[in-house]
């Protein structure tokens, strides 16, 4: 865990030295809490509510890449500037009937499914554009999914620094240890983007990179 953190911070520090502004991507499977985290960051540092769009319990609420430019995080005289990129959740299947089951009308469900497929395609295309990525996982779910492995494998192949976030620690079923056990070489930060619980750890982690 400590080794993983050091490795991530070391890569990240070099990145910040080379560039003043980076693209920080939020990646992960659907419903992990990427948009909730993006909104939390924008609320905490820009004072904007729902700046990156609304979050939902229905999967694929975010179907287009959302970018918030010039996010500035300040602390103790230091500052980080980055473009925050919220991406649609990556999935291997999308069935419009699932949206109907969630209460949508057929036309709306089909339209959402079509947009969701385009969103996944865009998210994969944007992998090459990222300077660093926070992978947001739902800590109440099994982390051993092929989608998670594929995302992280592709980031590693591109030598993009990765920080893992185990989200939803406010829920009873949350199991951060399971996420850490699945990815022991990566830094894992347990947070609740919804309540803001332990969010300072995420910000602290980012600041350590630019010492």
């Amino acid at each position: 865990m400590i080794k993983g953190l050091k490795s991530f911070f070391s890569k990240f520090r070099k990145l910040f030295k080379k560039k003043k502004k980076i693209k920080l991507g939020l990646y992960g499977p659907p419903n992990g809490g990427k948009t909730t985290l993006a909104n939390r960051i924008c609320k905490d540092w820009l004072g904007e509510e729902d700046a990156m769009g609304k979050a939902s319990n229905i999967a694929h609420e975010t179907r287009e890449i959302q970018i918030k430019e010039q996010v500035v995080i300040k602390s103790k005289g230091r500052e980080l500037i980055f473009n925050l990129v919220d991406t649609p959740g990556i999935a291997t299947k999308i069935d419009y009937e699932d949206f109907i089951k969630a209460g949508m009308k057929q036309k709306e469900a089909k339209s959402r499914a079509k947009e969701a497929t385009k969103g996944v395609i865009d998210a994969i295309k944007w992998l090459d554009e990222m300077d660093a990525v926070v992978v947001v996982l739902d800590s109440t779910k099994d982390p051993y999914s092929q989608v998670n492995i594929t995302i992280i494998g592709n980031l590693q192949a591109r030598d993009i620094p990765v920080l893992l976030v185990g989200n939803k620690i406010d829920l009873k079923k949350s199991d951060i240890k399971k996420v850490e056990a699945a990815f022991p070489q990566y830094a894992v930060v347990g947070i609740s983007a919804k309540t803001g619980s332990n969010i300072e750890s995420l910000y602290d982690g980012l600041f350590k990179l630019v010492k």
Partner: peptide, 13 residues
Amino acid sequence: SHEEAELIRSTME
């Protein structure tokens, strides 16, 4: 690994 990502992308298409 890039083929896995491509497989997902092609699937979506």
